[in-house]
């Protein structure tokens, strides 16, 4: 079998390390880059370098940021008395897109998972507790509903309990516009037990 030039082989190697990219896809992407205009390839390379050199983490909430504080923490319009705890910057974006939330965030950048060696300190929980001590009235625990997300929420909820702030968790329930018939039992049961006055 003919061997690929080393440079191309290196690119395939690097690409296949990306999440969700298998060896086949990596090959396809590498050949795509090879065939593309030089300008396009340079733009891609530059974008990768830029993202690493310009973007870091917010000193206060661990969201991604181009300055010491992220845009949300810098905004004077946000309500600093409410903190929403999320697993990742992508979850933060999802909540921002609703336009419903005016408070600040705390981004864990992970969940409590002993199997992956992730403990409470890795999630900047002590930072969160520190923040919650000054002028915060509510902390919303918006981690996922899977085992790790739920356990992380329970852990943080217990750590916050002595501080006297309100601790809440987003309701789980029926999707908007969804049909009752297709809801799974667990979701339906939760939605029923969390029903509201109509």
């Amino acid at each position: 079998m003919a061997e690929l030039p080393a440079a191309l082989e290196d690119l395939i190697q690097e690409l296949s390390r990306l999440p969700g990219v298998g060896p086949r896809t990596a090959q396809r992407l590498a050949f795509h880059v090879l065939r593309a205009d030089r300008a396009r390839a340079e733009a891609l390379a530059r974008a990768i370098l830029e993202v690493k050199s310009r973007i870091g983490y917010c000193e206060r909430c661990w969201n991604i940021a181009e300055e010491p504080l992220c845009t949300i923490c810098r905004s004077p319009r946000r309500d600093p008395s409410v903190i929403c705890v999320v697993e990742s910057p992508l979850d933060l974006l999802a909540i921002e897109r609703t336009g419903e939330y005016q408070g600040l965030y705390h981004v864990l950048n992970g969940v409590f998972s002993p199997i992956e060696g992730v403990g409470p300190e890795d999630l900047h929980v002590p930072d969160l507790l520190e923040r919650a001590r000054s002028g915060v009235r509510e902390v919303i625990l918006a981690t996922d509903a899977d085992v790790e997300g739920e356990t992380t929420a329970v852990y943080i909820g217990r750590a916050l309990a002595p501080l006297g702030v309100a601790v809440t968790r987003p309701a789980h329930g029926l999707p908007v516009g969804g049909s009752l018939e297709y809801a799974d039992e667990r979701t339906l049961a939760r939605a029923l037990s969390a029903r509201q006055a109509f």
């Binding site: 403990g119 085992v147 356990t151 329970v154 217990r158």
Partner: peptide
Amino acid sequence: KRVANGEQPADALDVWDLQ
């Protein structure tokens, strides 16, 4: 195992016990 070899504090187990 992580608590046994000192990587994590023992009280980290509380929340997993609860779950």
